[in-house]
Design a protein around this nucleic acid. Structure first.
Lengths: 197, 197
DNA sequence: TCTCATCCTGACCGTATGGTCAACATGAGA
DNA sequence: TCTCATGTTGACCATACGGTCAGGATGAGA
Protein backbone atom coordinates (compact mmCIF):
# COMPACT_ATOMS: atom_id res chain seq x y z
CA UNK A 1 0.00 0.00 0.00
CA UNK A 2 1.39 3.36 -0.94
CA UNK A 3 2.33 5.80 1.75
CA UNK A 4 -0.21 8.40 0.71
CA UNK A 5 -3.11 5.96 0.81
CA UNK A 6 -1.77 4.59 4.09
CA UNK A 7 -1.77 8.07 5.58
CA UNK A 8 -5.29 8.85 4.34
CA UNK A 9 -6.64 5.63 5.78
CA UNK A 10 -5.00 6.21 9.13
CA UNK A 11 -6.12 9.84 9.16
CA UNK A 12 -9.75 8.89 8.50
CA UNK A 13 -9.70 6.50 11.44
CA UNK A 14 -7.98 8.87 13.83
CA UNK A 15 -10.03 11.93 12.86
CA UNK A 16 -13.25 9.97 13.25
CA UNK A 17 -12.33 8.79 16.71
CA UNK A 18 -10.81 11.96 18.10
CA UNK A 19 -12.15 14.84 16.01
CA UNK A 20 -9.97 17.38 14.29
CA UNK A 21 -8.73 19.04 17.45
CA UNK A 22 -8.22 15.83 19.38
CA UNK A 23 -6.34 14.08 16.61
CA UNK A 24 -2.57 14.47 16.57
CA UNK A 25 -0.23 14.10 13.63
CA UNK A 26 1.92 11.87 15.79
CA UNK A 27 -0.96 9.43 16.37
CA UNK A 28 -1.87 9.37 12.69
CA UNK A 29 1.76 8.64 11.93
CA UNK A 30 1.84 5.80 14.46
CA UNK A 31 -1.34 4.24 13.03
CA UNK A 32 0.07 4.53 9.52
CA UNK A 33 3.38 3.09 10.70
CA UNK A 34 5.36 6.02 9.35
CA UNK A 35 7.43 8.78 10.93
CA UNK A 36 5.56 11.98 11.54
CA UNK A 37 7.78 14.00 9.24
CA UNK A 38 6.72 11.81 6.36
CA UNK A 39 3.11 12.97 6.65
CA UNK A 40 4.26 16.50 5.97
CA UNK A 41 5.92 15.39 2.79
CA UNK A 42 2.55 14.44 1.29
CA UNK A 43 0.31 16.89 3.14
CA UNK A 44 1.73 20.29 4.05
CA UNK A 45 -0.52 20.86 7.07
CA UNK A 46 -2.88 18.98 9.34
CA UNK A 47 -5.81 20.89 7.82
CA UNK A 48 -4.83 19.91 4.27
CA UNK A 49 -4.81 16.26 5.29
CA UNK A 50 -8.18 16.65 6.99
CA UNK A 51 -9.70 18.38 3.99
CA UNK A 52 -8.58 15.52 1.76
CA UNK A 53 -10.27 13.02 4.06
CA UNK A 54 -13.55 14.93 4.09
CA UNK A 55 -13.54 15.35 0.33
CA UNK A 56 -13.12 11.64 -0.34
CA UNK A 57 -16.11 10.95 1.90
CA UNK A 58 -18.22 13.48 0.07
CA UNK A 59 -17.66 11.57 -3.16
CA UNK A 60 -19.03 8.35 -1.66
CA UNK A 61 -22.05 10.24 -0.39
CA UNK A 62 -22.93 11.48 -3.83
CA UNK A 63 -22.67 8.05 -5.42
CA UNK A 64 -25.71 6.88 -3.50
CA UNK A 65 -27.72 9.51 -5.34
CA UNK A 66 -27.71 7.59 -8.60
CA UNK A 67 -30.27 5.08 -7.38
CA UNK A 68 -32.65 7.94 -6.74
CA UNK A 69 -32.63 9.38 -10.21
CA UNK A 70 -33.44 6.59 -12.62
CA UNK A 71 -36.15 5.06 -10.43
CA UNK A 72 -39.64 4.43 -11.68
CA UNK A 73 -41.34 5.64 -8.51
CA UNK A 74 -40.80 6.31 -4.80
CA UNK A 75 -40.97 2.69 -3.65
CA UNK A 76 -38.14 1.74 -5.95
CA UNK A 77 -36.12 4.97 -5.75
CA UNK A 78 -36.29 5.64 -2.02
CA UNK A 79 -36.04 1.95 -1.21
CA UNK A 80 -32.83 1.65 -3.19
CA UNK A 81 -31.52 4.88 -1.72
CA UNK A 82 -32.06 3.55 1.80
CA UNK A 83 -30.28 0.32 0.87
CA UNK A 84 -27.34 2.24 -0.58
CA UNK A 85 -27.01 4.63 2.34
CA UNK A 86 -27.25 1.80 4.87
CA UNK A 87 -24.53 -0.08 3.04
CA UNK A 88 -22.30 2.99 3.11
CA UNK A 89 -22.91 3.36 6.83
CA UNK A 90 -21.84 -0.21 7.34
CA UNK A 91 -18.77 -0.14 5.13
CA UNK A 92 -17.48 3.39 5.76
CA UNK A 93 -18.52 4.33 9.28
CA UNK A 94 -15.40 6.39 9.90
CA UNK A 95 -16.11 8.57 6.90
CA UNK A 96 -19.64 9.27 8.04
CA UNK A 97 -18.39 10.24 11.49
CA UNK A 98 -15.83 12.66 10.12
CA UNK A 99 -18.55 14.28 8.03
CA UNK A 100 -20.92 14.50 10.98
CA UNK A 101 -18.28 16.04 13.21
CA UNK A 102 -17.36 18.54 10.53
CA UNK A 103 -20.98 19.65 10.09
CA UNK A 104 -21.61 19.81 13.82
CA UNK A 105 -18.67 22.16 14.17
CA UNK A 106 -20.35 24.44 11.61
CA UNK A 107 -18.42 23.04 8.66
CA UNK A 108 -15.29 25.19 8.98
CA UNK A 109 -13.54 23.30 6.18
CA UNK A 110 -16.28 22.26 3.73
CA UNK A 111 -18.88 25.02 4.01
CA UNK A 112 -18.48 25.68 0.27
CA UNK A 113 -19.63 22.13 -0.49
CA UNK A 114 -22.78 22.60 1.56
CA UNK A 115 -23.61 25.81 -0.25
CA UNK A 116 -23.01 24.49 -3.76
CA UNK A 117 -22.99 20.77 -4.46
CA UNK A 118 -25.20 19.62 -1.60
CA UNK A 119 -27.66 22.45 -2.11
CA UNK A 120 -28.05 21.58 -5.80
CA UNK A 121 -28.31 17.87 -5.06
CA UNK A 122 -31.05 18.47 -2.50
CA UNK A 123 -33.04 20.73 -4.80
CA UNK A 124 -32.86 18.12 -7.57
CA UNK A 125 -34.08 15.31 -5.35
CA UNK A 126 -36.86 17.48 -3.92
CA UNK A 127 -38.07 18.10 -7.46
CA UNK A 128 -38.26 14.38 -8.11
CA UNK A 129 -40.21 13.84 -4.90
CA UNK A 130 -42.65 16.60 -5.80
CA UNK A 131 -43.22 14.99 -9.17
CA UNK A 132 -43.99 11.67 -7.52
CA UNK A 133 -46.44 13.44 -5.24
CA UNK A 134 -48.17 15.21 -8.11
CA UNK A 135 -48.43 11.89 -9.92
CA UNK A 136 -50.21 10.43 -6.93
CA UNK A 137 -47.50 7.87 -6.28
CA UNK A 138 -47.00 8.94 -2.66
CA UNK A 139 -48.49 11.20 0.02
CA UNK A 140 -47.91 14.95 0.04
CA UNK A 141 -44.89 14.90 2.34
CA UNK A 142 -42.55 17.89 2.63
CA UNK A 143 -39.57 16.83 0.45
CA UNK A 144 -36.85 18.61 2.44
CA UNK A 145 -37.89 17.11 5.74
CA UNK A 146 -38.27 13.71 4.14
CA UNK A 147 -34.67 13.90 2.92
CA UNK A 148 -33.47 15.00 6.36
CA UNK A 149 -35.24 12.01 7.88
CA UNK A 150 -33.63 9.65 5.38
CA UNK A 151 -30.16 11.05 5.98
CA UNK A 152 -30.60 11.06 9.73
CA UNK A 153 -31.81 7.49 9.95
CA UNK A 154 -29.30 5.89 7.60
CA UNK A 155 -26.29 7.77 8.94
CA UNK A 156 -27.29 7.08 12.52
CA UNK A 157 -26.18 3.46 12.05
CA UNK A 158 -22.65 4.73 11.32
CA UNK A 159 -22.39 7.76 13.57
CA UNK A 160 -24.00 6.13 16.60
CA UNK A 161 -22.68 2.66 15.84
CA UNK A 162 -20.94 2.50 19.18
CA UNK A 163 -24.17 3.23 21.04
CA UNK A 164 -26.05 0.64 19.00
CA UNK A 165 -23.31 -1.89 19.62
CA UNK A 166 -23.43 -1.23 23.35
CA UNK A 167 -27.22 -1.66 23.41
CA UNK A 168 -26.74 -4.87 21.41
CA UNK A 169 -24.83 -6.45 24.27
CA UNK A 170 -21.47 -5.12 23.16
CA UNK A 171 -21.64 -6.97 19.86
CA UNK A 172 -21.67 -5.36 16.42
CA UNK A 173 -24.85 -5.96 14.46
CA UNK A 174 -24.78 -9.33 12.73
CA UNK A 175 -25.61 -9.82 9.07
CA UNK A 176 -29.16 -10.78 10.01
CA UNK A 177 -29.51 -7.73 12.24
CA UNK A 178 -28.32 -5.45 9.45
CA UNK A 179 -30.94 -6.97 7.17
CA UNK A 180 -33.53 -6.44 9.88
CA UNK A 181 -32.44 -2.82 10.20
CA UNK A 182 -32.67 -2.20 6.48
CA UNK A 183 -36.06 -3.83 6.10
CA UNK A 184 -37.44 -2.03 9.15
CA UNK A 185 -36.27 1.36 7.90
CA UNK A 186 -37.63 0.71 4.43
CA UNK A 187 -40.93 -0.61 5.76
CA UNK A 188 -41.55 2.39 8.04
CA UNK A 189 -40.54 4.98 5.47
CA UNK A 190 -42.31 3.53 2.44
CA UNK A 191 -45.51 2.90 4.33
CA UNK A 192 -45.11 6.25 6.10
CA UNK A 193 -45.12 8.18 2.84
CA UNK A 194 -47.85 6.07 1.29
CA UNK A 195 -45.62 4.44 -1.32
CA UNK A 196 -46.37 0.83 -0.51
CA UNK A 197 -48.69 -0.83 -2.96
CA UNK B 1 -25.49 34.17 37.37
CA UNK B 2 -23.18 32.19 39.54
CA UNK B 3 -19.70 31.41 38.35
CA UNK B 4 -20.24 27.66 38.27
CA UNK B 5 -23.36 27.91 36.09
CA UNK B 6 -21.59 30.49 33.94
CA UNK B 7 -18.71 28.09 33.38
CA UNK B 8 -21.00 25.16 32.57
CA UNK B 9 -22.95 27.21 30.06
CA UNK B 10 -19.80 28.44 28.36
CA UNK B 11 -18.29 24.95 28.39
CA UNK B 12 -21.37 23.44 26.72
CA UNK B 13 -21.18 25.97 23.92
CA UNK B 14 -17.42 25.64 23.39
CA UNK B 15 -17.35 21.84 23.63
CA UNK B 16 -20.22 21.55 21.14
CA UNK B 17 -18.48 23.78 18.62
CA UNK B 18 -14.93 22.48 18.93
CA UNK B 19 -15.18 19.00 20.43
CA UNK B 20 -13.31 17.93 23.55
CA UNK B 21 -9.88 18.06 21.97
CA UNK B 22 -10.43 21.27 20.09
CA UNK B 23 -11.86 23.14 23.05
CA UNK B 24 -9.42 25.04 25.24
CA UNK B 25 -9.86 26.04 28.84
CA UNK B 26 -8.75 29.54 27.87
CA UNK B 27 -11.58 29.88 25.36
CA UNK B 28 -14.16 28.58 27.82
CA UNK B 29 -12.84 31.10 30.33
CA UNK B 30 -13.12 33.92 27.80
CA UNK B 31 -16.70 32.97 26.89
CA UNK B 32 -17.61 32.80 30.56
CA UNK B 33 -15.87 36.12 31.20
CA UNK B 34 -13.68 34.68 33.94
CA UNK B 35 -9.96 34.10 34.33
CA UNK B 36 -8.83 30.63 33.41
CA UNK B 37 -7.54 29.83 36.87
CA UNK B 38 -11.04 30.29 38.22
CA UNK B 39 -12.33 27.35 36.18
CA UNK B 40 -9.93 25.09 38.01
CA UNK B 41 -11.35 26.20 41.32
CA UNK B 42 -14.72 24.65 40.46
CA UNK B 43 -13.56 21.85 38.18
CA UNK B 44 -10.20 20.22 38.87
CA UNK B 45 -9.56 19.13 35.28
CA UNK B 46 -10.83 19.73 31.79
CA UNK B 47 -12.26 16.21 31.76
CA UNK B 48 -14.19 16.78 34.99
CA UNK B 49 -15.80 19.87 33.48
CA UNK B 50 -16.64 17.95 30.31
CA UNK B 51 -18.16 15.09 32.25
CA UNK B 52 -20.40 17.49 34.13
CA UNK B 53 -21.62 18.96 30.83
CA UNK B 54 -22.44 15.55 29.39
CA UNK B 55 -24.22 14.44 32.55
CA UNK B 56 -26.51 17.46 32.60
CA UNK B 57 -27.49 16.72 29.00
CA UNK B 58 -28.26 13.13 29.85
CA UNK B 59 -30.82 14.30 32.40
CA UNK B 60 -32.71 16.33 29.80
CA UNK B 61 -32.72 13.33 27.48
CA UNK B 62 -34.37 11.13 30.05
CA UNK B 63 -37.11 13.64 30.82
CA UNK B 64 -38.57 13.15 27.35
CA UNK B 65 -39.22 9.54 28.28
CA UNK B 66 -42.10 10.39 30.57
CA UNK B 67 -44.44 11.07 27.67
CA UNK B 68 -43.81 7.56 26.45
CA UNK B 69 -44.82 5.76 29.58
CA UNK B 70 -48.25 6.97 30.54
CA UNK B 71 -49.58 7.02 26.99
CA UNK B 72 -52.71 5.19 26.00
CA UNK B 73 -51.28 3.87 22.73
CA UNK B 74 -48.57 4.42 20.12
CA UNK B 75 -50.20 7.36 18.36
CA UNK B 76 -50.33 9.32 21.57
CA UNK B 77 -47.10 8.03 23.15
CA UNK B 78 -44.79 8.16 20.15
CA UNK B 79 -46.36 11.36 18.89
CA UNK B 80 -45.73 13.09 22.19
CA UNK B 81 -42.22 11.64 22.34
CA UNK B 82 -41.42 13.09 18.92
CA UNK B 83 -42.78 16.47 19.99
CA UNK B 84 -40.69 16.41 23.15
CA UNK B 85 -37.48 15.33 21.42
CA UNK B 86 -37.91 17.90 18.65
CA UNK B 87 -38.43 20.61 21.25
CA UNK B 88 -35.24 19.54 23.02
CA UNK B 89 -33.35 19.66 19.73
CA UNK B 90 -34.55 23.18 19.19
CA UNK B 91 -33.89 24.48 22.69
CA UNK B 92 -30.70 22.62 23.58
CA UNK B 93 -28.83 21.97 20.33
CA UNK B 94 -25.43 22.35 21.96
CA UNK B 95 -26.19 19.62 24.45
CA UNK B 96 -27.26 17.22 21.73
CA UNK B 97 -24.07 17.90 19.81
CA UNK B 98 -21.86 17.25 22.79
CA UNK B 99 -23.64 13.95 23.33
CA UNK B 100 -23.32 12.98 19.68
CA UNK B 101 -19.62 13.79 19.61
CA UNK B 102 -19.04 11.82 22.79
CA UNK B 103 -20.80 8.73 21.42
CA UNK B 104 -19.05 8.98 18.05
CA UNK B 105 -15.73 8.97 19.85
CA UNK B 106 -16.74 5.66 21.47
CA UNK B 107 -18.03 7.32 24.64
CA UNK B 108 -14.70 7.55 26.50
CA UNK B 109 -16.28 9.47 29.37
CA UNK B 110 -19.86 8.19 29.66
CA UNK B 111 -19.64 4.55 28.57
CA UNK B 112 -21.03 3.49 31.96
CA UNK B 113 -24.23 5.44 31.26
CA UNK B 114 -24.72 3.63 27.98
CA UNK B 115 -24.30 0.28 29.65
CA UNK B 116 -26.63 0.95 32.57
CA UNK B 117 -29.19 3.72 32.41
CA UNK B 118 -29.65 3.90 28.64
CA UNK B 119 -29.72 0.13 28.29
CA UNK B 120 -32.45 -0.16 30.90
CA UNK B 121 -34.41 2.73 29.42
CA UNK B 122 -34.30 1.17 25.97
CA UNK B 123 -35.41 -2.23 27.23
CA UNK B 124 -38.34 -0.66 29.07
CA UNK B 125 -39.54 1.26 26.03
CA UNK B 126 -39.13 -1.79 23.79
CA UNK B 127 -41.39 -3.69 26.14
CA UNK B 128 -44.06 -1.04 25.84
CA UNK B 129 -43.80 -1.13 22.04
CA UNK B 130 -44.12 -4.93 22.00
CA UNK B 131 -47.23 -4.67 24.12
CA UNK B 132 -48.76 -2.21 21.70
CA UNK B 133 -47.95 -4.58 18.86
CA UNK B 134 -49.48 -7.56 20.63
CA UNK B 135 -52.59 -5.50 21.32
CA UNK B 136 -52.91 -4.81 17.61
CA UNK B 137 -52.45 -1.07 18.04
CA UNK B 138 -49.54 -0.86 15.55
CA UNK B 139 -47.64 -2.97 13.02
CA UNK B 140 -45.05 -5.56 14.06
CA UNK B 141 -42.03 -3.27 13.81
CA UNK B 142 -38.72 -4.15 15.45
CA UNK B 143 -38.78 -2.00 18.63
CA UNK B 144 -35.02 -1.39 18.82
CA UNK B 145 -34.72 -0.17 15.26
CA UNK B 146 -37.83 1.96 15.67
CA UNK B 147 -36.24 3.66 18.67
CA UNK B 148 -33.01 4.22 16.74
CA UNK B 149 -35.00 5.81 13.93
CA UNK B 150 -36.80 8.10 16.37
CA UNK B 151 -33.56 9.17 18.05
CA UNK B 152 -31.79 9.66 14.74
CA UNK B 153 -34.50 11.80 13.21
CA UNK B 154 -35.24 14.05 16.14
CA UNK B 155 -31.62 14.64 17.07
CA UNK B 156 -30.68 15.31 13.46
CA UNK B 157 -32.39 18.69 13.73
CA UNK B 158 -29.96 19.65 16.49
CA UNK B 159 -26.77 17.87 15.41
CA UNK B 160 -27.04 18.82 11.74
CA UNK B 161 -28.73 22.15 12.37
CA UNK B 162 -25.98 23.96 10.55
CA UNK B 163 -26.46 21.85 7.43
CA UNK B 164 -30.22 22.35 7.56
CA UNK B 165 -29.74 26.07 8.04
CA UNK B 166 -27.40 26.25 5.04
CA UNK B 167 -29.89 24.35 2.86
CA UNK B 168 -32.59 26.73 4.12
CA UNK B 169 -30.85 29.68 2.47
CA UNK B 170 -28.64 30.40 5.47
CA UNK B 171 -31.65 31.08 7.70
CA UNK B 172 -32.58 29.12 10.83
CA UNK B 173 -35.90 27.33 10.59
CA UNK B 174 -38.78 29.65 11.34
CA UNK B 175 -41.55 28.80 13.80
CA UNK B 176 -43.72 27.63 10.91
CA UNK B 177 -40.91 25.48 9.52
CA UNK B 178 -40.37 23.84 12.89
CA UNK B 179 -44.07 23.04 13.03
CA UNK B 180 -43.83 21.64 9.52
CA UNK B 181 -40.86 19.51 10.57
CA UNK B 182 -42.66 18.15 13.62
CA UNK B 183 -45.85 17.34 11.75
CA UNK B 184 -43.95 15.72 8.88
CA UNK B 185 -41.92 13.52 11.20
CA UNK B 186 -45.00 12.52 13.19
CA UNK B 187 -47.02 11.87 10.04
CA UNK B 188 -44.37 9.62 8.45
CA UNK B 189 -43.64 7.68 11.62
CA UNK B 190 -47.18 7.16 12.84
CA UNK B 191 -48.44 6.13 9.44
CA UNK B 192 -45.28 4.09 8.88
CA UNK B 193 -45.89 1.93 11.93
CA UNK B 194 -49.62 1.66 11.27
CA UNK B 195 -50.65 3.73 14.28
CA UNK B 196 -52.82 6.27 12.50
CA UNK B 197 -56.52 5.71 12.92
C1' DT C 1 29.48 3.55 -11.97
C1' DC C 2 27.55 8.19 -11.81
C1' DT C 3 23.49 11.38 -11.69
C1' DC C 4 19.54 13.12 -9.90
C1' DA C 5 14.76 13.29 -8.79
C1' DT C 6 11.90 11.28 -5.51
C1' DC C 7 11.08 9.68 -1.11
C1' DC C 8 12.03 9.33 3.67
C1' DT C 9 13.52 10.61 8.56
C1' DG C 10 15.71 12.02 13.25
C1' DA C 11 16.39 16.00 15.55
C1' DC C 12 14.96 20.27 16.47
C1' DC C 13 11.99 24.82 17.32
C1' DG C 14 8.46 28.18 18.70
C1' DT C 15 4.14 28.13 20.61
C1' DA C 16 0.08 27.16 23.18
C1' DT C 17 -1.91 24.05 26.18
C1' DG C 18 -3.64 22.07 30.85
C1' DG C 19 -2.68 22.67 35.22
C1' DT C 20 -0.36 24.83 39.73
C1' DC C 21 0.36 28.07 43.30
C1' DA C 22 0.97 31.75 46.41
C1' DA C 23 -1.26 35.75 47.28
C1' DC C 24 -5.26 38.59 47.49
C1' DA C 25 -10.46 39.94 48.01
C1' DT C 26 -14.82 39.37 50.25
C1' DG C 27 -18.16 39.07 53.71
C1' DA C 28 -20.66 36.72 57.48
C1' DG C 29 -20.35 35.83 62.36
C1' DA C 30 -18.33 36.67 66.98
C1' DT D 1 -12.49 44.94 64.77
C1' DC D 2 -10.77 40.27 64.15
C1' DT D 3 -11.28 35.56 62.16
C1' DC D 4 -11.57 32.51 58.66
C1' DA D 5 -13.94 29.95 55.07
C1' DT D 6 -15.01 30.80 50.47
C1' DG D 7 -13.82 32.80 46.04
C1' DT D 8 -10.68 34.86 42.85
C1' DT D 9 -6.51 35.87 40.21
C1' DG D 10 -1.91 36.89 37.62
C1' DA D 11 2.18 34.68 36.98
C1' DC D 12 4.35 30.66 36.23
C1' DC D 13 5.74 25.64 34.67
C1' DA D 14 6.33 21.23 32.28
C1' DT D 15 4.62 19.13 28.40
C1' DA D 16 3.04 18.12 23.87
C1' DC D 17 1.72 20.02 19.81
C1' DG D 18 2.24 21.32 14.57
C1' DG D 19 5.60 22.23 11.64
C1' DT D 20 10.69 22.73 9.75
C1' DC D 21 15.00 21.30 7.93
C1' DA D 22 19.27 19.32 6.62
C1' DG D 23 20.66 15.31 5.25
C1' DG D 24 20.23 10.32 4.21
C1' DA D 25 18.18 6.32 1.33
C1' DT D 26 16.53 4.50 -3.03
C1' DG D 27 16.32 3.33 -7.70
C1' DA D 28 15.73 4.30 -12.67
C1' DG D 29 18.30 5.90 -16.64
C1' DA D 30 22.66 6.92 -19.00
Amino acid sequence: MESEALILSAAEKVFSEAGFGGATMQLIADVAGLPKANLHYYFPTKEALYRQVVQSIFQIWLQAADTFDQAEGPAEGIGAYIDAKMEISRRFPSGSKVWATEVMHRAPVIQDYLETTLLEWTAGRATIIRRWISEGRMDAVNPDHLLYMLWATTQHYADFGHQIETLNGGQPLSDAQWEEAKSTVKQVFLKGIGALT
